[in-house]
Protein backbone atom coordinates (compact mmCIF):
# COMPACT_ATOMS: atom_id res chain seq x y z
CA UNK A 1 0.00 0.00 0.00
CA UNK A 2 2.88 2.38 0.80
CA UNK A 3 3.96 2.56 -2.81
CA UNK A 4 0.45 2.66 -4.22
CA UNK A 5 -0.87 5.88 -2.73
CA UNK A 6 -0.78 7.57 -6.12
CA UNK A 7 -3.12 4.94 -7.56
CA UNK A 8 -5.65 5.73 -4.84
CA UNK A 9 -5.11 9.46 -5.45
CA UNK A 10 -5.82 8.92 -9.14
CA UNK A 11 -9.08 7.07 -8.42
CA UNK A 12 -10.24 9.68 -5.90
CA UNK A 13 -9.41 12.57 -8.26
CA UNK A 14 -11.21 10.91 -11.17
CA UNK A 15 -14.31 10.12 -9.09
CA UNK A 16 -14.36 13.81 -8.18
CA UNK A 17 -13.85 14.78 -11.83
CA UNK A 18 -16.72 12.56 -13.03
CA UNK A 19 -19.14 13.91 -10.41
CA UNK A 20 -18.09 17.57 -10.54
CA UNK A 21 -17.47 17.49 -14.28
CA UNK A 22 -21.15 16.82 -14.94
CA UNK A 23 -22.66 18.82 -12.13
CA UNK A 24 -20.78 22.12 -11.68
CA UNK A 25 -22.08 25.28 -13.30
CA UNK A 26 -20.31 26.01 -16.58
CA UNK A 27 -20.35 29.27 -18.54
CA UNK A 28 -23.09 29.36 -21.16
CA UNK A 29 -21.24 29.64 -24.46
CA UNK A 30 -22.65 29.80 -27.98
CA UNK A 31 -22.32 26.62 -30.08
CA UNK A 32 -20.54 24.75 -27.28
CA UNK A 33 -23.42 24.70 -24.77
CA UNK A 34 -22.91 21.81 -22.34
CA UNK A 35 -20.14 20.26 -24.46
CA UNK A 36 -17.66 22.62 -22.76
CA UNK A 37 -17.61 19.88 -20.12
CA UNK A 38 -15.57 17.83 -22.59
CA UNK A 39 -12.68 19.97 -21.39
CA UNK A 40 -12.41 17.62 -18.40
CA UNK A 41 -12.29 14.54 -20.59
CA UNK A 42 -11.11 15.25 -24.15
CA UNK A 43 -8.48 17.91 -23.42
CA UNK A 44 -7.08 16.00 -20.45
CA UNK A 45 -6.48 12.95 -22.69
CA UNK A 46 -3.98 15.04 -24.66
CA UNK A 47 -2.36 16.42 -21.53
CA UNK A 48 -1.90 12.89 -20.20
CA UNK A 49 -0.62 11.79 -23.62
CA UNK A 50 2.00 14.55 -23.75
CA UNK A 51 3.22 13.92 -20.20
CA UNK A 52 3.52 10.17 -20.84
CA UNK A 53 5.34 10.79 -24.13
CA UNK A 54 7.72 13.08 -22.24
CA UNK A 55 8.40 10.20 -19.85
CA UNK A 56 9.00 7.99 -22.90
CA UNK A 57 11.66 10.40 -24.17
CA UNK A 58 13.27 10.66 -20.74
CA UNK A 59 13.46 6.84 -20.59
CA UNK A 60 15.08 6.80 -24.02
CA UNK A 61 17.70 9.33 -22.90
CA UNK A 62 18.29 7.21 -19.81
CA UNK A 63 18.77 4.17 -22.01
CA UNK A 64 21.27 5.99 -24.21
CA UNK A 65 23.33 7.10 -21.20
CA UNK A 66 23.39 3.77 -19.33
CA UNK A 67 22.40 1.12 -21.91
CA UNK A 68 20.10 -0.63 -19.49
CA UNK A 69 17.39 -2.66 -21.22
CA UNK A 70 14.88 -1.82 -18.49
CA UNK A 71 14.94 1.83 -19.59
CA UNK A 72 14.10 0.70 -23.13
CA UNK A 73 11.09 -1.23 -21.79
CA UNK A 74 9.87 1.91 -19.99
CA UNK A 75 10.35 3.93 -23.18
CA UNK A 76 8.42 1.60 -25.47
CA UNK A 77 5.59 0.99 -23.02
CA UNK A 78 5.30 4.74 -22.34
CA UNK A 79 4.95 5.26 -26.07
CA UNK A 80 2.30 2.52 -26.17
CA UNK A 81 0.32 4.05 -23.34
CA UNK A 82 0.73 7.53 -24.82
CA UNK A 83 -0.66 6.25 -28.14
CA UNK A 84 -3.63 4.82 -26.26
CA UNK A 85 -4.41 8.23 -24.77
CA UNK A 86 -3.76 9.93 -28.10
CA UNK A 87 -6.22 7.61 -29.84
CA UNK A 88 -8.85 8.38 -27.22
CA UNK A 89 -8.07 12.08 -27.67
CA UNK A 90 -8.50 11.87 -31.45
CA UNK A 91 -11.77 9.92 -31.25
CA UNK A 92 -13.33 12.15 -28.57
CA UNK A 93 -12.14 15.21 -30.49
CA UNK A 94 -13.78 13.96 -33.70
CA UNK A 95 -17.07 13.38 -31.92
CA UNK A 96 -16.90 16.81 -30.33
CA UNK A 97 -15.98 18.45 -33.66
CA UNK A 98 -18.96 16.84 -35.38
CA UNK A 99 -21.39 18.54 -33.01
CA UNK A 100 -19.69 21.94 -32.79
CA UNK A 101 -17.89 22.49 -36.12
CA UNK A 102 -20.24 20.31 -38.12
CA UNK A 103 -17.80 17.69 -39.38
CA UNK A 104 -15.83 14.73 -38.06
CA UNK A 105 -12.61 16.21 -39.38
CA UNK A 106 -11.80 19.76 -40.45
CA UNK A 107 -8.61 20.80 -42.17
CA UNK A 108 -7.12 22.58 -39.22
CA UNK A 109 -3.49 22.91 -38.07
CA UNK A 110 -4.23 21.52 -34.64
CA UNK A 111 -6.11 18.47 -35.91
CA UNK A 112 -3.64 17.69 -38.68
CA UNK A 113 -0.80 18.23 -36.22
CA UNK A 114 -2.37 15.68 -33.89
CA UNK A 115 -2.74 13.19 -36.74
CA UNK A 116 0.87 13.75 -37.82
CA UNK A 117 2.05 13.19 -34.24
CA UNK A 118 0.23 9.88 -34.10
CA UNK A 119 1.83 8.83 -37.41
CA UNK A 120 5.29 9.78 -36.11
CA UNK A 121 4.80 7.50 -33.11
CA UNK A 122 3.39 4.75 -35.32
CA UNK A 123 6.65 4.99 -37.27
CA UNK A 124 8.47 4.43 -33.96
CA UNK A 125 6.76 1.06 -33.62
CA UNK A 126 7.36 0.21 -37.27
CA UNK A 127 11.05 1.03 -36.76
CA UNK A 128 11.21 -1.24 -33.72
CA UNK A 129 9.41 -4.02 -35.55
CA UNK A 130 11.87 -3.89 -38.42
CA UNK A 131 14.89 -4.97 -36.35
CA UNK A 132 15.59 -8.32 -34.72
CA UNK A 133 18.69 -7.49 -32.70
CA UNK A 134 17.37 -6.30 -29.33
CA UNK A 135 20.26 -3.95 -28.55
CA UNK A 136 20.31 -2.39 -31.97
CA UNK A 137 16.53 -2.01 -31.86
CA UNK A 138 16.73 -0.29 -28.48
CA UNK A 139 19.53 2.08 -29.48
CA UNK A 140 18.14 3.21 -32.82
CA UNK A 141 14.57 3.55 -31.57
CA UNK A 142 15.74 5.53 -28.53
CA UNK A 143 17.37 8.09 -30.81
CA UNK A 144 14.28 8.21 -33.01
CA UNK A 145 12.11 8.63 -29.91
CA UNK A 146 13.89 11.85 -28.95
CA UNK A 147 13.12 13.26 -32.40
CA UNK A 148 9.55 11.98 -32.13
CA UNK A 149 8.92 13.96 -28.96
CA UNK A 150 10.50 17.04 -30.49
CA UNK A 151 8.11 16.70 -33.43
CA UNK A 152 5.21 16.24 -30.99
CA UNK A 153 6.04 19.64 -29.46
CA UNK A 154 6.34 21.17 -32.92
CA UNK A 155 3.07 19.72 -34.22
CA UNK A 156 0.90 20.02 -31.12
CA UNK A 157 2.27 23.18 -29.52
CA UNK A 158 4.28 25.37 -31.91
CA UNK A 159 2.71 25.07 -35.37
CA UNK A 160 -0.91 25.60 -34.25
CA UNK A 161 0.22 28.80 -32.53
CA UNK A 162 1.73 30.15 -35.76
CA UNK A 163 -1.58 30.20 -37.61
CA UNK A 164 -5.23 30.72 -36.90
CA UNK A 165 -7.21 27.68 -35.99
CA UNK A 166 -10.73 26.70 -35.08
CA UNK A 167 -9.33 24.75 -32.19
CA UNK A 168 -8.95 26.66 -28.90
CA UNK A 169 -5.41 27.06 -27.64
CA UNK A 170 -4.06 28.15 -31.03
CA UNK A 171 -2.92 31.42 -32.58
CA UNK A 172 -0.47 33.56 -30.61
CA UNK A 173 0.26 32.64 -27.03
CA UNK A 174 -3.11 31.75 -25.53
CA UNK A 175 -2.18 29.68 -22.47
CA UNK A 176 -5.46 28.46 -21.04
CA UNK A 177 -7.31 31.74 -21.57
CA UNK A 178 -8.95 30.85 -24.87
CA UNK A 179 -10.48 27.70 -23.46
CA UNK A 180 -13.16 30.10 -22.22
CA UNK A 181 -13.03 28.55 -18.81
CA UNK A 182 -13.75 30.26 -15.54
CA UNK A 183 -12.18 29.62 -12.16
CA UNK A 184 -14.94 27.15 -11.36
CA UNK A 185 -13.89 24.94 -14.23
CA UNK A 186 -10.20 25.15 -13.32
CA UNK A 187 -11.08 23.49 -10.01
CA UNK A 188 -12.06 20.42 -12.00
CA UNK A 189 -9.72 20.80 -14.99
CA UNK A 190 -6.40 20.66 -13.11
CA UNK A 191 -7.36 17.67 -10.92
CA UNK A 192 -8.58 15.97 -14.12
CA UNK A 193 -5.15 16.38 -15.73
CA UNK A 194 -3.43 14.90 -12.67
CA UNK A 195 -6.00 12.11 -12.31
CA UNK A 196 -5.91 10.94 -15.92
CA UNK A 197 -2.12 11.17 -16.06
CA UNK A 198 -1.75 9.05 -12.92
CA UNK A 199 -4.23 6.58 -14.40
CA UNK A 200 -2.03 6.42 -17.49
CA UNK A 201 1.06 5.82 -15.35
CA UNK A 202 -0.79 2.99 -13.58
CA UNK A 203 -1.63 1.29 -16.89
CA UNK A 204 1.94 1.95 -18.02
CA UNK A 205 3.35 0.37 -14.87
CA UNK A 206 1.22 -2.75 -15.34
CA UNK A 207 2.45 -3.11 -18.93
CA UNK A 208 6.08 -2.61 -17.91
CA UNK A 209 5.82 -5.19 -15.12
CA UNK A 210 4.26 -7.69 -17.51
CA UNK A 211 7.17 -7.17 -19.90
CA UNK A 212 9.73 -7.62 -17.11
CA UNK A 213 8.03 -10.90 -16.17
CA UNK A 214 8.24 -12.02 -19.79
CA UNK A 215 11.96 -11.12 -19.86
CA UNK A 216 12.61 -13.10 -16.68
CA UNK A 217 10.73 -16.14 -18.00
CA UNK A 218 12.66 -15.98 -21.27
CA UNK A 219 15.94 -15.69 -19.35
CA UNK A 220 15.15 -18.81 -17.30
CA UNK A 221 14.11 -21.05 -20.17
Amino acid sequence: MKNNWWKILSVILLIYVIIAGFLIDVPALPILHETIRNLFFHVTMWFAMMIIMLSSMVSSIKFLSKFKMSADVWAVESANTGMFFGTLGLLTGMLWANYTWGDWWVNDPKLNGAAATMLIYLAYFVLRGSMDDEEKKAKISAIYNIFAFTMLIVFLVILPRMTDSLHPGSGGNPGFSTYDIDDNMRLVFYPAIIGWTLMGVWILQIRVRTRFLRMKINANV
Binding site: V11, L14, I15, I18, I19, F22, L23
Partner: peptide
Amino acid sequence: KIYVVVGVLLIIFLGFI
Protein backbone atom coordinates in the same frame (compact mmCIF):
# COMPACT_ATOMS: atom_id res chain seq x y z
CA LYS B 1 -32.02 13.21 -14.53
CA ILE B 2 -28.34 14.06 -15.12
CA TYR B 3 -27.53 12.35 -11.81
CA VAL B 4 -28.51 9.04 -13.37
CA VAL B 5 -25.84 9.53 -16.03
CA VAL B 6 -23.29 10.45 -13.38
CA GLY B 7 -24.26 7.28 -11.50
CA VAL B 8 -23.89 5.11 -14.59
CA LEU B 9 -20.51 6.60 -15.38
CA LEU B 10 -19.37 6.09 -11.78
CA ILE B 11 -20.40 2.43 -11.86
CA ILE B 12 -18.52 1.90 -15.14
CA PHE B 13 -15.48 3.75 -13.84
CA LEU B 14 -15.40 1.85 -10.56
CA GLY B 15 -15.78 -1.37 -12.55
CA PHE B 16 -12.74 -0.44 -14.63
CA ILE B 17 -10.80 0.39 -11.49
